[in-house]
Simulated scan of single mutants.
Amino acid sequence: MQALEEKLGYTFRDPALLDNALTHSSYANENRAAGAQSNERLEFLGDSILGMVTADYLYRTHPDLPEGDLTRTRAALVCEESLVEVAQAWGLGQFLKLGRGENAGGGRTRPSIQADAVEAVLAAVFLDGGIAPARQIIQTYILDAEAERGRNRDYKTALQELVQRESGQVLRYCLVGSSGPDHAKVFAVEVELNGNTVGRGQGHSKKEAEQNAARAAIAALEGKGK
């Protein structure tokens, strides 16, 4: 378990919590007489912790996003695909305790099992050391990673590609305000689609504000398409 703790950047005071977090129900069912318990209860708790930390982060770092966009962004961050990426970064599959059948059937690489185990591990960290280390792990492996992807993404181009799926679509970026002193000015931009505002963003440059407006528009338009 030491290798996993090194990945987490956290050492358990109660190693039994981590052991429980890695115990799949198939293993627990086969070893019930020995007192094995599945990680399902920890998964339940970890899901709430992950959602709360992510919601807090989005609320504080994206003051321009309305409730609907915040909800969609949080859902994207805590989805199974995102958690599987975390599991792979931890090498979590090798540490899982699976029943014989689940192990033979490729359970160590099954996305649902890996994602659930990530949530269980987060809960185990929370129970062992409190919210601070759990928050730090979420920040490092989910929130910072997403922010880095965001910095590398051209949201204006992505929005243009999205709306061009239908012909005759017209995008327009409008500077609607600015505030603050010259050395720290904040610009506000709205992006319109066919004359209707579909996104709003702020930034310390017009370019940054336009990128944030495009990001908000993508979230809004993709949400309507679901």
Rank of each mutant, 00 (worst) to 15 (best):
Q2K: 13
Q2G: 07
Q2T: 10
E5K: 05
E6T: 14
E6K: 15
L8M: 04
L8Q: 00
F12T: 02
P15F: 00
P15A: 00
A16R: 11
L18N: 00
N20I: 09
N20E: 15
L22Y: 01
S25E: 12
S26K: 02
N31F: 09
N31S: 12
A33C: 07
A33M: 14
A34S: 05
A34Q: 14
Q37R: 12
S38K: 03
S38C: 04
E40N: 13
L42R: 05
D47N: 14
L50R: 05
G51L: 07
M52E: 15
A55V: 03
A55E: 15
D56I: 12
Y59E: 15
R60I: 10
R60G: 13
T61Y: 00
T61C: 05
H62M: 11
D64F: 14
G68V: 02
G68A: 00
G68L: 01
D69W: 13
L70V: 00
R72T: 08
R72H: 13
C79D: 14
V84G: 05
E85D: 13
A87D: 03
Q88G: 06
A89M: 10
A89Y: 09
W90K: 06
G91Q: 09
Q94G: 14
Q94A: 13
Q94F: 00
F95L: 04
L96I: 01
K97S: 13
L98T: 01
E102M: 06
A104N: 12
G105I: 01
G106A: 02
R110Q: 14
R110D: 15
P111N: 05
S112E: 15
Q114M: 10
G130V: 05
I131R: 09
A132R: 06
A132Y: 02
A134C: 04
A134M: 08
R135M: 03
Q136H: 14
I138Y: 14
Q139N: 12
I142M: 06
I142S: 02
I142R: 04
L143D: 12
D144N: 08
D144R: 06
A147G: 07
E148S: 12
G150T: 15
N152R: 11
D154R: 04
D154S: 06
Y155R: 00
L159D: 04
Q160K: 13
L162K: 08
V163Q: 10
R165E: 09
E166S: 12
E166Y: 08
G168Y: 02
Q169H: 00
V170N: 11
L171V: 04
Y173R: 06
L175E: 05
V176R: 05
S178H: 03
S179D: 07
S179E: 12
G180V: 08
H183T: 12
A184M: 14
K185C: 08
A188S: 10
L193R: 07
V198M: 03
G199D: 05
G201I: 12
G203T: 05
S205F: 11
K206N: 06
A209T: 07
A209K: 02
A214D: 03
A214V: 00
A214M: 02
A214G: 02
R215A: 08
A216R: 11
I218S: 00
A220Y: 15
K224F: 11
K224T: 07
